[in-house]
Design a protein around this nucleic acid. Structure first.
Lengths: 155, 155
DNA sequence: TTATCTTTGACTAATATTGACTTTTATTAT
DNA sequence: ATAATAAAAGTCAATATTAGTCAAAGATAA
């Protein structure tokens, strides 16, 4: 509905390509030119919107013929990916990243809409109502990991 | 009805937009300018007049292209049952009592089996991993209440 | 008068944008 | 083959652009 900032627009552009193909491979400077931004903004978009929490793997190469390649992966049905995700979460996760995890579980059809929303409520900042941000993030990590392991066991 | 303070006027303005469309999306500073108030008054209006009890969901984003989005949702009929449960839970609940609450929601077909299990994982003693029992119980209360509040409306 | 509601603003937090500098890899010249 | 150069992408910190919080002061209602 809203795509006011250019990062959201670039995100949508890349995801529209990913909707059709398994992966997308870009030249950073080309995308930057296309949207009239500095090249490092492409890194920003990737770093904030195409993380493993979002269900994406990114690889790149520098130098002549360099590229950035983004691949969509499923988080739960590949045990290695799930382990990697759990490791990245570690003992702390922000609401934003946790939201991304739940969102991608929904996109992977591991959770339906209602289940995803129940989980989002459980890990919400306002729900937890803590003032200590570190405690909030570590609690959120335990809840998310608990749920991931439950889903793993289930499937 | 007669004495219209500025908060009431802003409330009416937003609701007049919501009368036509499912949601309204604003830039906080723009609305503040429009009514000649400080930006934080918009937060006050939202916090006091667009609560979930009244059937409104609010989400926002900061930074460039930031926004506040208000959505009207349909409240379920038996909200008073939820209110009663919330009353009973208060600000603290043991794992055993929480299990009973989730169990009864399952038996009343408010939750299905899978949803109930996800919630039980989230409020489990081992999942939360806290040493402070009071904190654990109050956190569990907040999570359950958050979920009950979520069940007030259909999305 | 007292309790509640409203208004204000200083401070905080989150997110986005930009550009200078670094690192890696490929290609070209010697 | 090696060295120099070019062509990519990566990092990081400064700045900009929003919204959020909180408490004090003011206004209104009971």
């Amino acid at each position: 509905m809203q795509s006011q900032n250019i990062s959201d627009i670039i995100e949508k552009y890349l995801k529209s390509i990913l909707a059709d193909s398994e992966h997308v491979e870009i030249r950073r400077s080309e995308i930057a030119d296309l949207f009239n931004v500095v090249p490092s903004q492409i890194n920003y978009v990737i770093k904030t919107r195409f993380t493993i929490q979002n269900g994406y793997l990114v690889e790149s190469k520098r130098g002549g013929g360099g590229y950035i390649r983004i691949e969509k992966v499923n988080l739960v049905d590949d045990a290695d990916v799930l382990d990697a995700l759990i490791q990245v979460i570690g003992d702390s996760i922000t609401q934003r990243d946790a939201y991304a995890v739940v969102q991608s579980l929904y996109e992977d059809d591991v959770l339906n809409r209602r289940e995803a929303q129940l989980i989002l409520v459980a890990i919400d900042h306002d729900t937890l109502g803590l003032t200590d941000r570190d405690l909030e993030n570590s609690l959120r990590a335990r809840i998310i990991i608990g749920i991931l392991n439950h889903l793993r066991y289930e499937s």
